[in-house]
């Protein structure tokens, strides 16, 4: 292959104190690909996502986004830690959506979305607001622009959160259980937005327990347990005939 993958993890490890949360994780995500990650609670899925945009530092291995080392610069044999400014420059191209939305409660939906483009990219306010409005329409909330998060349902909040991440024009979107905090009847509207995003060619890594979404949208599926990748492959095949015993027992519980 000639082109660098969007994400390349090479034997990535990470510990919190003596608790080894990621053990030698290796995987690749190509441009335009949707990767779904599943696994039991505490298996390290969130930690892996957080490493990709350097919210956590890795202890061993190498992690690349678009061929660029995450959080460090290689100088000969040595690795130099990036300055906060340089790390933030890398994060610009990576959007993240959280399980608990994490919208800014003191700002309206529109202000939530236009904030980062204005502050980080220095976009003029009028432009940032116009773009935010466009994104609100895109996630189907054109009429809710002036609402504060407290006045929106969980599903609407999560769609605003997706729009907020998209406002930075990311090349990669990370989703950490985006529908887990939602009432069942609100899950669909968020998944629909994500499906649209996938169809538009966005590269996505999605931690989810929505196996239907994985089956329909994902290009590949990874099953993690105890900080290692137990099994990975084509989602339809893996969901139909999981090879590993641990995958089988996990899937039998969630399907």
């Amino acid at each position: 292959m000639t082109e660098e993958p969007m994400v390349r993890a090479d034997r990535v490890s990470k510990s919190f104190g003596s608790n080894m949360v990621l053990r030698s994780i290796s995987l690749e995500v190509q441009r335009g690909e949707v990767l779904c990650m599943v696994g039991p609670s505490g298996s390290g899925k969130s930690t892996f996502l957080r490493c990709i945009n350097h919210l956590e530092k890795i202890d061993a291995g190498r992690l690349f986004v678009e061929g660029e080392l995450v959080g460090y610069r290689q100088k000969g044999e040595k690795l130099l830690e990036l300055k906060p400014k340089e790390a933030s420059l890398q994060r610009r191209d990576i959007g993240m959506v959280f399980q608990r939305f994490n919208l800014f409660p003191h700002m309206t939906a529109l202000e939530n979305i236009s904030q980062a483009p204005m502050r980080v990219k220095g976009l003029p306010k009028a432009k940032a607001v116009a773009r935010a409005m466009e994104l609100m329409e895109r996630v189907g909330l054109g009429d809710k622009a002036d609402h504060y998060p407290a006045h929106l349902s969980g599903g609407q909040q999560q769609r605003v959160a997706i729009a907020r991440a998209l406002a930075m024009d990311p090349k990669l979107m990370l989703f950490d259980e985006p529908t887990s905090a939602l009432d069942p009847e609100l899950v669909g509207e968020v998944l629909d937005v994500m499906k649209g995003l996938a169809r538009s060619g966005m590269t996505m890594i999605v931690v989810t327990h929505e196996m239907g979404f994985a089956r329909e949208v994902a290009d590949s599926l990874v099953f993690m347990d105890g900080g290692v990748i137990v099994e990975s492959g084509d989602p339809r095949e893996m969901l139909a005939n999981p090879k590993e015993a641990r995958t089988q027992s996990f899937l039998s519980k969630v399907l």
Partner: peptide, 22 residues
């Protein structure tokens, strides 16, 4: 909430911006 700082950081805001605006 810690998630606020995390979300702002993930949006590439600096520590100062995160403090000041969020």
């Amino acid at each position: 909430d810690e998630g606020q700082e995390e979300a702002a950081t993930a949006l590439a805001m600096s520590w100062t911006q995160t403090m000041r605006f969020v």
